[in-house]
Amino acid sequence: MSDTLLEIKDLKVHFPIRSKKLFGGVTQYVKAVDGVSFRIEKGETLGLVGESGSGKTTVGRSILRAIEPTEGKIVFNVDGEAFDLSKLTDKELRGFRKHMQLIFQDPYSSLNPRMTVRDIIAEPLVAQKLAKGGEVDERVREAAALCKLNLEFLRRFPHAFSGGQRQRIGIARALISRPQFIVCDESVSALDVSIQAEILNLLMDLQKEFGFTFLFIAHDLSVVAHISKRVAVMYLGQLVELAPTKDLFYTPKHPYTEALMSAIPEVNPDQEMNPVHLAGEIPSPINPPSGCRFHTRCPYTKDMCKTDIPKWKEIEDNHFVSCHFANTLTLKGAEIPTSVDAN
């Protein structure tokens, strides 16, 4: 496809566990991400959900090479040229950083407390020498204004700001180099409900205006549904399902997605939750289960799930799933809400 911005092919991130013996080498690996492939279209928001330990953060960070991927290709199309990020040297990568950015979860730890807001926002420009002198200031003011920061406060330090404002500073830093691709790693999870809405609106406005492409990683399903065009679900280092948002939420094809959807607490006392019960606990990513990784907890598991690895296939237009029985199971999606008016 011509309008694909990023294509991830068979991405793996394995973390070695050092043996405790004196000269013991590496004996085991935590397979945080274990063979993940997907595309991100230009200008879209792809949501990535999954529970803790699913590897969603690692996917986001290894695409940016904040974490070194072990295997796989990360093809980034920019200006009609395709680059495999996984092959770039450190120096080449530094030159490429202007095209991609990360918005962090924690608005406190992600800003250097010893730098002024102006310097924090300017960092990508200065570090990559993208602008000089007065132009830096001009662009900082522009980015700050876009994020609705008070321009009088640029000379202040982060400790002067609240969580929501700090997150705006982080966003201004992310967009100042006019990147094509931004990873939002739980970027609104640490914020209060009322602030979270502002930041979500801001992200959507900025996307509309500048055509940013987002990979939006979060554990809050409603937030992801709100902002994403398509959503991918991860379980134990692999994708289990990827589909346009409404398809995924209302007609899931994978039992794990069904379980997730059933567990969303609806803001409606008349709709009682009926969560699907998953057996046991999420298995260790050091020794993931054989066959389908979800078979140890799946309510629909059959013998073949224990041995055969399900294929990642497109069962409907744009609806990918990896389950042997994706076509035969009838699964329940999120409750189609009876609209509640909140005045």
Binding site: S194, Q196, L200, S222, A225, I264
Partner: peptide, 22 residues
């Protein structure tokens, strides 16, 4: 508050944020 949270029955609708900070 109720308008500020993203909800499944209003996917894609613009959220109404509460202005200012706590």
């Amino acid at each position: 508050l109720l308008k500020a949270i993203p909800r499944l029955d209003r996917i894609g609708e613009r959220l109404t944020a509460i202005r200012g900070d706590i």
